[in-house]
Design a binder for these strands. Structure first.
Lengths: 187, 187
DNA sequence: CGCAATGGCAACACACTGTTGCCATTGTCC
DNA sequence: GGACAATGGCAACAGTGTGTTGCCATTGCG
């Protein structure tokens, strides 16, 4: 063997390099989808990303930090509200959005992390984001006189869980079920 | 040190011994409550139970098997239905039961295991047990003419998630919220 | 009494975790 | 162009947990 000591292996290095963040995020997503959050190994993420373990640990000290990075883009979808013109329409759109997000690998990762003591903060932040959207939506409906505050309270209780739980059970609601649910809440 | 080779340490051994099952179950519960399902270590369970690791592995080849054993007694509570005389009473009782069970260490262990690919079977079995109860309850209400099949469908969709999801978020519903929810479903 | 069932002990190879010290590369600023 | 700071790779580390295995000890039951 010609003892070639060190060489660049097509990897960009030096200041301001961003490929690491992207490839690690992608790798984490892949691994999360493959083995779930509990079995997620920083080691495997690094290998999949084609990056050194050291590097991963430098940017993300914990699995939870990694989860937060992975999940962020999906959470941003909750920042713009559905606005279909009617309360029921908004409601259905919101339910569908929650369903869609929680079906994504990112969403499933969040679900898997829900039971983990040290991921609580991330999971809670994600939920708060969802709930903020529902709050805006329901309050708007009250303002427009489309629902009473009493309905708002119950809807608020029931909406997220009704969508999320079937998702956890891996038997998501279909569109007809979403609509039927919305019809009962907003008769 | 007088090199005392082997001695019984107050431990019952031989055929038909049952202390192992009980102490391991208790230890597993303790550990589950302490570190959650993901970090549950067979090693720690064995140590806490005062039992050899070998022994634990012999009876429970996987963490999931251990979970199933731990959780079984709680699931049995779903096998007898609430029967208060009215549909709404039954409904509230059922919701309260789900809430109570999922607040127990056993229930929290199940929630934590919900995202784990290899625990899916156990989690699903547990949910099916719950759902079976709800099914019986709602069908009985339909038979008695207290609700329509349409309400049954929606209630069926919404009940479990509405209770479980806040539990996952660690902000369980209070009694007033349970009743309000029941009142909307069964006006 | 003898045996089968049960459990303990010790050791093994393996995998993942965090961490650390040292070196290589590269963009940027002077 | 040269120096430097930022960035990342490599290798090694001790520590912990995982399953598994071979061997031995105890004990209830026929």
């Amino acid at each position: 063997m010609t003892d070639e000591p060190r060489r660049t292996r097509g990897v960009q290095r030096g200041p301001r390099s961003t490929h690491v963040i992207e490839s690690v995020r992608a790798a984490a997503l892949t691994e999360l989808d493959r083995v779930g959050f509990a079995r997620l190994a920083m080691d495997a993420v690094a290998r999949t990303a084609g990056v050194s373990r050291t590097t991963v640990y430098r940017r993300w000290p914990t699995k939870t930090a990694l989860l937060a990075t992975v999940v962020e883009p999906v959470l941003q979808r909750y920042d713009t509200d559905p606005d279909t013109g009617t309360a029921r329409g908004d409601l259905i759109a919101a339910l569908a959005l929650i369903r869609a997000n929680s079906a994504l690998p990112e969403g499933r990762a969040l679900i898997a992390a829900a039971g983990e003591p040290d991921s609580q903060a991330v999971v809670r932040a994600a939920n708060d984001r969802t709930i903020a959207m529902l709050e805006r939506l329901l309050t708007r409906a009250v303002d427009r006189g489309e629902i009473t505050t009493d309905v708002r309270t119950v809807a608020y209780l029931a909406m997220q869980g009704t969508v999320m739980w079937p998702q956890i059970r891996d038997t998501p609601l279909d569109d007809a079920e979403l609509e039927r649910f919305a019809r009962v809440l907003l008769p």
